[in-house]
Write a protein that binds this DNA or RNA. Structure first.
Lengths: 330, 330
DNA sequence: TTGTATGCGTTATCAG
DNA sequence: CTGATAACGCATACAA
């Protein structure tokens, strides 16, 4: 491994100058820059990261904690963040949490001890207060998490709008009695989706006072539970908006178990556009969102504020309705 | 951030001694060790990684390249590797490839320039020769890739056995005319699965000379292609063994498009046990394997040989048949 | 615009 | 078993 010393000898300049061209300083004349660049190329020089980090007190590494890597789109998100960061010549250190505050806290502690320059968080367990506290000591960037005081560090999905449009679509198809399976109440995105449902209903002059909303944990089992609940309540409905595609699968299973057929007996619309939504029968109509773009935006934002002291602004991403075969027009 | 200097002042020893207790050297008497430990605890001391790396010429980081993070189980694998490494006090640097040799090569180059201490490779594009070449300059550990000369650095799945048992199961259920959709011929695991199929057939005295094997790229579309091919060949079959669950989904779709019902008209068995196999109807019988265990084993192996100069041995993992509803007894 | 000198926090060599 | 001390490779004031 060539060192800066060999480069400066070959180029006939000082180490400081080489360091300047490495870091793209503008205080170096074009001629010397070229000379140095040539020397670096000839030697195949690669800066030693540890030395850089030690001298500059910067690891050039951003940490990312993901609450559970086996989730539907977390892998994709991570890959996109990694790609973006690599392009910007920074690195990504991953720590996977397990969906609970404790393990996420531990992951953050781990990353901090690895002295990352900043944190990208795709977590579910941490409270707003905890997040805010962490951000005092290290730049924090959020994905899909609205935290008061960190609005400008967040990249989020218009969950409200997505659910609104999904519900609206059902209404346009003639449905009036619509039931909603919401995610857990401690999850921001779940709440926004439920709110989107309610608003769309009200805007259409439809009643939502009859308990048509049931909260469950996301996942297949939740969908089944909710459907049983609706039956116990003897609710009439011709369509259900599910808080997630997985929940929708639970609804599918419940329908199957009860001899009901979708969308003839009732319609279903999901949220997330996971792969499975195209595999399931009937193919699931659902709400899609730009995973990769969101991830890249987050990485970009982190880069800009951490390394360029840029001012950042929160950015909202929009959903898109993906119409398949789980909704019937009445 | 406390430094080693403050620790040694507080403990009344030299930096060298502190360093020794940090690294668990045995050449330090118990009394001083305790003294130092107490000082470290009191100060909340955390060694500076960059300084350690610079001085020791070791990053304590292992790089991992994954050919495509959005794949079915790659995220899970990565999370498991990360967890294992973290437990061992090492770090994971990720680089995602895109399933082709070029991007994987670039990912490796990237990780090397980040001076990782070793590489865990879950790739698909790189040739054996390329892999072998890379391993000359840096310790390489493989997941699911048999490379001559790197046998002892590999953790792999018994793809042959898995396909063998799947086929055998079909035969036990009374099937005689069985057709096989294989993955691409340049993929080791695909070949092993095909071989497992052939052997199981032969062992049962069944004929495989009539072109019952068709190779496609993995994925839904591949399954459809293969089924069309079988029809063109006017092959008779009562069951198909698919090279992957995704391929099996393609078979499902083809059946649906052609008004055939599984498993009444023909049976299907998959491979991988992805989530979708439980979501699809009928639920897919398939071949499962221990993703997390394989990942951990790989991380452990890398750790042992890189940091403890241990000798390693390749380890094979076994599959398990997961019986659901896509196979009918004849 | 460039060079000099110093320090970053550890590890490792060599004495003691 | 412990202590000095010289690297490790680079960044950055400061000087020129």
């Amino acid at each position: 491994m060539a060192t800066i010393k060999q480069v400066c000898e070959l180029a006939g300049v000082s180490a400081a100058t080489v360091s300047r061209v490495i870091n793209g300083s503008d205080r170096v004349i074009e001629a010397t820059r070229k000379k140095v660049q040539a020397a670096m190329d000839e030697l195949g020089y690669q800066p030693n990261l540890a030395a850089q980090a030690l001298a500059s007190n910067r690891s050039n590494t951003i940490g990312m904690v993901i609450s559970g890597l086996d989730g539907p789109f977390y892998g994709t998100m991570m890959a996109a963040v990694e790609a973006q960061l690599r392009e910007l010549n920074r690195h990504l250190l991953i720590a996977s949490g397990h969906g609970n505050a404790e393990s996420e806290e531990e992951a953050i502690k781990y990353l901090s001890s690895r002295q990352v320059d900043g944190l990208i968080l795709l977590t579910e367990g941490l409270s707003s207060e905890a997040l805010l506290a962490i951000s005092q000591s290290i730049p924090v960037f959020l994905i899909n998490q609205q935290v008061p005081g960190l609005e400008n560090r967040n990249v989020w999905l218009d969950n409200f709008g997505g659910a609104y449009r999904a519900t609206q679509h059902l209404i346009e198809q003639g449905h009036r009695n619509i039931v909603c399976i919401g995610g857990p109440a401690f999850k921001q995105d779940a709440n926004d989706r439920v709110a989107g449902f309610e608003t769309a209903m009200r805007d259409a002059g439809l009643d939502v006072s009859g308990q048509p909303i049931f909260r469950v944990t996301f996942g297949v089992e939740g969908g089944r539970q909710a459907m049983n609940y609706f039956r116990e309540q003897q609710l009439e409905y011709s369509a259900v908006v599910a808080g997630s595609d997985e929940t929708a699968v639970g609804v599918y299973e419940w329908a199957e178990e009860n001899g009901l057929v979708i969308p003839d007996d009732f319609s279903v619309i999901g949220f997330d556009n996971m792969n499975l939504s195209a595999y399931v029968r009937p193919k699931l109509s659902t709400v899609a969102f730009p995973i990769v773009e969101m991830a890249k935006a987050s990485a970009r934002m982190a880069f800009d504020v951490i390394y360029n002291k840029a001012h950042s602004e929160g950015v909202e991403f929009n959903t898109e309705l993906v119409l398949r075969n789980s909704v019937k027009a009445l």
